[in-house]
């Protein structure tokens, strides 16, 4: 089992307020890792530290040591742009660009110079859309606007867009919270298919979803990592009483 991301003693502050306390966690290459916990527990915040999306919040400050394949991602030498290409992200609400489906997927490869010609770009777009399980539905209307798709399709388009830059890790921040149950099921299937090719970290407020899609689960509470382990163990045999309380629905 290889460790893709290792985080050690991570603290995150928003101004004076501490959002994450002393979190240490290792993310496996081969597994889907789920972050669960009540709202405001810091699971999304922590997710965003993994590709430095927190840099966009002026007041945010990150302490600690986070490494991708052993490289310190907060070091001065790390180019944040390349980091985000390697650690892709899918957001809570589908956010396609108001451009064509093709352009949505092709944008990333283009800015990173991953394709040297039209045919290569076409291949990347087709492959990404296929992997995101969207190709069959959109192959005849690639020039339609991405915003004209249904919510579930939009979210799969966003996943295709993330895949297109050939990332090593995909972070998903509650990717199904804005979708209906059928679209959710499609995304969950998709996560299942993508497993192994990419390290996947998914934040969810839905415990059944975590149980369905992940192999590892981390439970966050009030900015702390309470418990982290195999999903089966967490849900059937939690060690911490707080985890038990949350899973049995006593709060959350």
């Amino acid at each position: 089992m290889t460790q893709k991301i290792t985080a050690h003693d991570v603290n995150v502050f928003y101004g004076e307020k501490q959002a994450i306390r002393q979190v240490s966690i290792d993310i496996d290459q081969e597994d889907v890792t789920a972050f669960i916990g009540p709202s405001g527990c810091g699971k999304s915040t922590f997710l965003r530290t993994l590709n430095r999306m927190n840099d966009t919040v002026a007041s945010a400050r990150v302490e600690g040591d986070i490494r991708l394949d052993g490289e310190d991602i907060y070091s001065k030498d790390m180019d944040v742009v390349q980091l985000r290409a390697r650690v892709g992200m899918v957001f809570q609400k589908p956010n396609p660009f108001p451009k064509s489906i093709y352009e949505n997927v092709a944008y990333g490869p283009r800015i990173h110079g991953l394709a040297s010609g039209k045919s290569e770009m076409d291949a990347i777009v087709e492959q990404s859309l296929t992997r995101a399980g969207l190709w069959a539905e959109v192959k005849d209307r690639l020039s339609d606007s991405g915003t004209a798709l249904s919510g579930g399709q939009q979210q799969r388009l966003c996943i295709a867009r993330a895949i297109a830059v050939d990332p090593e890790v995909i972070l998903m921040d509650e990717p199904c919270s804005a979708l209906d149950p059928i679209a959710t099921a499609r995304i969950e299937e998709l996560i299942h298919d993508l497993r192994g090719r990419y390290a996947i970290v998914i934040v969810t407020h839905n415990m059944q979803q975590a149980a369905r899609v992940s192999q590892k689960t981390a439970f966050f509470h009030l900015g702390e990592l309470v418990e982290y382990g195999d999903t089966n163990d967490i849900f059937t045999n939690p060690r911490e009483p707080r985890t038990t309380d949350y899973i049995t629905g006593r709060y959350g």
Binding site: G113, L114, S116
Partner: peptide, 13 residues
């Protein structure tokens, strides 16, 4: 520079 290998560069031509 970018003949052959497909590699990530920090900048495009």
């Amino acid at each position: 520079f970018r003949t052959g290998r497909r590699e990530r560069f920090s900048a495009l031509p």
